[in-house]
Write a protein that binds this DNA or RNA. Structure first.
Length: 631
DNA sequence: CCCGGAATAC
DNA sequence: GTATTCCGGG
């Protein structure tokens, strides 16, 4: 199977297993050669179609629609409005904007990793480099799901190749040659997969493991192809389960969807080489029955003569990072729910990996300031930036605003990375900033530790009048010194308590969920919001491989129960934990109606279909202060 | 240009 | 479901 498979709809959507427009758009955006056709421009995620006709033509090519034009294409784009993949930048001709934060992950798997691309205006180039987050392929709904955190996959031999920095589109003096697969190697090198998945979807962990192995395999496999986004089918043996998290039958291991001959050439390699879009050849066009001659450009430089998603994946990675971290943070949060710890990306041997030189952005248009800032990953120096927003929250001190988490690493401040934070006078404004709250959370703990130090110092001598958030920090500091005094277990040698933002952003709420015991999950329950997980798993109900919850339907809400959260899970076997997961306090993002989709449609169902809520859990915030008030 | 309904294809 | 194809209207 090919690594591009992810870009195609799963079998749940018959006949739609073709690349989607927004994928294609991203693909073009990622390619330098099309910068005159379409390019990132303006705000975060914003792009402008410079040559509508050409874009339409290319799109038509890809989709074998010779009569495609911008009018039709734009109609398709408009359909994305309701789905929140895109919205229009009003007033700007041919300009649209991706809702990366919200949507990228909704429908599609998290791409693995370490691509050179750091997306449009990706705020955390350095941060990302510093804290590489290879994200295994994973159904997006996992990310959106605030079920739980998964143990972080272990580390693996590092062979992260340096990557050429890529300033911006404008700074496009260098471009990776078609054969340049450094990014892929880097991705592969990311065997250190520390991604979180949800307990609710523990089966995804299986997938992860598989993918991890796949990545490892692809990493060392002489290949001219990029490592798989979605790894090739593989058989993961127990021995290769680095975490030995659980040893589950893998007979139902993730298998890429079969290729339907009706829709795609079934040649084994056809998908791998799908970039040529062979099915576009009339001889393959059995479905439409149309007859037209289509002159494909298979020459180099065409978007069709390469692995189409190689770059797309890269393009995604940026946002996946953001979103993933976002999700991961949520996941961690859950994992960290009282008495628990999350694991930071520390290698098994205890060393903390530092990304050697992953260089951001091949084609992404970084923020203007980013261009100027140093991109030396080696000399990454965190720059503490306290946003007004944060200041306000500190000042406000509304304890209910804070998500209490025991053994909290002091997330003293919102970190930012030099060059990755918009200037104060930036036009971006609050929304943009909010978009990046996850930035700080993706910083390595080492970086956070830096802050921690200052935080400790800062708070020395202060008292309980300080907001609970700060008290958490303090408490954590103490616990670090005297870990045995805590009810929570001391972190394992290679583990470090993970910082979780102790406060809630305005668009966040806390809710408590109880993951359904895996044993009770049924595959049927998986197909709620997003079918990807279920589809990819295709686990028969009788499968010994546990499926897991992936939808709200699998969550039983539960009030905050101290009894269940104070015990801590550390003493419990993981297997037990998974079977009887504790209620989790979950940080959820509440849908913000930035651009509310107005269901003016006569057909509400239709609207609902096209409006995919980003938040699966929506509940009134739960004040957890009482839980930790004892401190 | 842009929007979104409607019908239809796949 | 995801477009594609039309199209009336702003």
């Amino acid at each position: 199977m090919s690594e591009q498979e992810w870009a195609y709809k799963s079998e749940s959507s018959p006949g739609s297993r073709q690349i989607q427009l927004w994928h294609f758009i991203l693909e073009l955006l990622q390619k330098e050669e099309f910068r005159d056709v379409i390019a990132w421009q303006g705000d975060y995620g914003e792009f402008v179609i410079k040559d509508p006709d050409e874009v339409a033509r290319l799109w038509g090519m890809r989709k074998c629609k010779p009569h495609m034009n911008y009018d039709k294409l734009s109609r398709a784009l408009r359909y994305y409005y309701n789905k929140r993949i895109l919205h229009k930048t009003k007033g700007k001709r041919f300009t649209y904007k991706f809702n990366f934060n919200k949507l990228i992950l909704v429908n599609y798997p998290v791409l693995d990793v370490d691509c050179g691309y750091y997306g449009p205006h990706f705020p955390t180039c350095e941060a990302a480099m510093q804290y590489p987050r290879p994200m295994p392929t994973l159904p997006s709904n996992v990310m959106m799901m605030d079920g739980a955190a998964a143990p972080i996959p272990p580390t693996a031999p590092q062979a992260v190749p340096a990557r050429r920095p890529r300033g911006s589109v404008s700074d496009s003096s260098e471009e990776s040659a078609p054969g340049d697969h450094t990014a892929e190697d880097g991705a592969a090198a990311h065997a250190r997969l520390h991604y979180n998945h949800t307990m609710l979807q523990a089966h995804m962990y299986d997938r992860h493991l598989q993918m991890q192995e796949a990545q490892q395999q692809s990493m060392f496999r002489p290949s001219h192809r990029p490592p798989c986004l979605i790894p090739e089918p593989l058989r993961l043996g127990p021995a290769s389960d680095p975490m030995a998290f659980h040893q589950l039958p893998r007979d139902h291991a993730f298998q890429p969807p079969k290729i339907h001959s009706e829709s795609l050439p079934s040649t084994p390699s056809s998908l791998s080489d799908y970039s040529s879009s062979p099915q576009c050849s009339p001889m393959f066009d059995t479905a439409s029955g149309t007859r037209f001659s289509f002159n494909f450009n298979f020459n180099t430089g065409s978007p069709f003569d390469r692995k189409p998603h190689q770059d797309l994946r890269s393009a995604f990675t940026t946002h996946v990072r953001v979103s993933s971290v976002d999700g991961e943070d949520k996941a961690r949060l859950q994992e960290v729910s009282p008495g628990r710890l999350t694991i930071d990306p520390t290698m098994k041997d205890g060393r903390r990996e530092r990304s050697p030189g992953r260089i951001p952005g091949l084609l992404s248009p970084p923020r203007p300031m980013e261009r100027v800032r140093s991109r030396s990953p080696q000399r990454f120096v965190p720059k503490v930036v306290k946003t007004e927003e944060e200041d306000e929250k500190y000042t406000r001190g509304s304890s209910s605003q804070y998500l209490a988490v025991p053994r909290l690493l002091p997330m003293a401040r919102r970190h930012s990375v030099d060059g990755c934070i918009p200037s104060e006078n930036s036009e971006e404004g609050a929304r943009d900033r909010r978009q990046r709250w996850s930035v700080s959370d993706m910083l390595p703990d080492t970086v956070k530790a830096v802050d921690q130090e200052s935080a400790q110092t800062d708070e020395e001598g202060k008292d309980k009048s300080i907001p609970i958030k700060l008290r958490f920090k303090r408490k954590y500091s103490q616990s670090q010194e005297q870990p045995e005094g805590q009810d929570a277990p001391a972190p394992a040698a290679a583990e470090t308590a993970r910082v979780v933002r102790p406060w809630l952003d305005d668009d966040e709420r806390v809710t408590t969920v109880r993951p359904r015991p895996r044993a009770f999950s049924t595959p049927a329950e998986l197909s709620n919001q997003n079918s990807s997980a279920a589809q990819q798993e295709k686990l028969p109900p009788t499968s010994t491989a546990p499926s897991a919850a992936s939808s709200m339907g699998d969550l039983r809400r539960e009030g905050s129960r101290e009894d269940s959260i104070q015990q801590g899970d550390a003493a419990r076997p993981r297997a037990d934990r998974r079977k009887n997961p504790h209620p989790l306090h979950v940080r959820v993002k509440v849908e913000q109606e930035d651009e509310p989709a107005t269901p003016s449609s006569r057909n509400l169902a239709h609207h609902v279909r096209h409006y995919q809520p980003q938040i699966l859990i929506k509940e009134e915030p739960e004040d957890l202060d009482d839980v930790f008030a004892s401190e």
